[in-house]
């Protein structure tokens, strides 16, 4: 494969899990309370997948465990806010921290180490569609990805469709715009909010599975900031699925570039990773509601 082939193909592979996590975040943002625990939920998903799949030898059970575990953590954050009137934002930050601690403990019990655990069986193989994959550029990009990437792509499509074209997505959006519109329609807003959080957990779980399966190992801090990037994507993508896709692809490209940078370009890879934050920070700083809250000269 040429340099360009690898770059494009990697961009997409990196972008997909970020996009999926961001779509999960979009559900909560649209419902009015952005779930900032995406980073932790990805880690929880990746770990519970690795642990369950390794223990049972079944990828399917691993994925189910990941979905259940991440959704449970997400619901914990929502419940702390709903039942105990904790600040939802702080509760989600706490879930991030909780996952870090719990996964550390669990890793010692399950794998006997807090470090990297190679799990070659879990590595998702690259598909090879023969003639298709030899099409210049498009071939490697679309037809020579790892199997898991196709699953994630499907999940992204499902999440986007569910957001914009199902009754659930409609209710989530109505909830964030005006809670009363749901109540007068006889729908319980709290249920919708819980489901939105569960959806964000499930999306992050699959993103975590994808990360674990693309390296064929359990790596502590496997998300390495992708959950935060996903939050940034929600914001930069203007809260529309298509916008999220564009933003994720841009970030995927930057990541792929930084991986390739060491070898080919003379730009330090870390500096390339600064870019998404700088761009989004500039957007956040320049965009305002006009004047400090309740301010006057």
């Amino acid at each position: 494969m040429t340099f360009a082939d690898t770059l494009l193909s990697d961009s997409l592979a990196i972008a997909l899990p970020i996009l999926l996590a961001a779509l999960g975040g979009l559900f909560t943002e649209a419902a009015g309370t952005l779930n900032v625990a995406l980073e932790g939920l990805i880690v929880a998903g990746a770990f519970s997948f690795a642990a369950a799949a390794e223990a049972t030898g079944s990828i399917g059970i691993g994925i189910a465990a990941a979905l259940a575990c991440s959704a449970a953590f997400a619901i914990l954050a929502a419940a702390a806010a709903d039942r105990l009137s904790a600040n939802p934002f702080v509760a989600a930050l706490a879930v991030n921290l909780l996952v870090a601690g719990a996964v550390g403990i669990a890793s010692e019990h399950v794998f006997g180490t807090k470090g990297v655990v190679p799990l070659a069986d879990l590595l998702s193989p690259r598909v090879d569609l023969g003639a298709f994959s030899r099409i210049p550029l498009l071939g490697p990009l679309l037809f020579r990805q790892r199997g898991i990437s196709y699953l994630v792509a499907g999940a992204c499509a499902a999440a986007a469709a569910s957001y914009s074209s199902t009754p659930f997505g409609l209710r989530v959006r109505a909830l964030g715009m005006r809670e009363g519109s749901l109540r007068i329609a006889g729908v319980d807003p709290r249920t919708v909010r819980y489901w939105a959080f569960a959806a964000s957990g499930a999306a992050c779980a699959l993103a975590g599975v994808a990360l674990a399966r693309s390296v064929g190992a359990w790596v502590p801090n496997i998300a390495s900031g992708r959950g935060w990037i996903a939050l940034v994507v929600v914001y930069l993508g203007r809260k529309r699925p298509a916008g999220l896709a564009l933003a994720s692809l841009a970030f995927g490209f930057l990541f792929a570039l930084s991986n390739a940078a060491q070898a080919v370009l003379s730009v330090p890879p870390e500096l390339i990773l600064v870019l998404p934050y700088v761009v989004t920070a500039a957007a956040a700083l320049l965009e305002g509601t006009g004047g400090a809250r309740g301010s006057r000269g």
Binding site: S85, A86, A91, A94, L98
Partner: peptide, 9 residues
Amino acid sequence: ALVLLLATA
């Protein structure tokens, strides 16, 4: 983490 989770509850 639990402190943080419950601090504002």
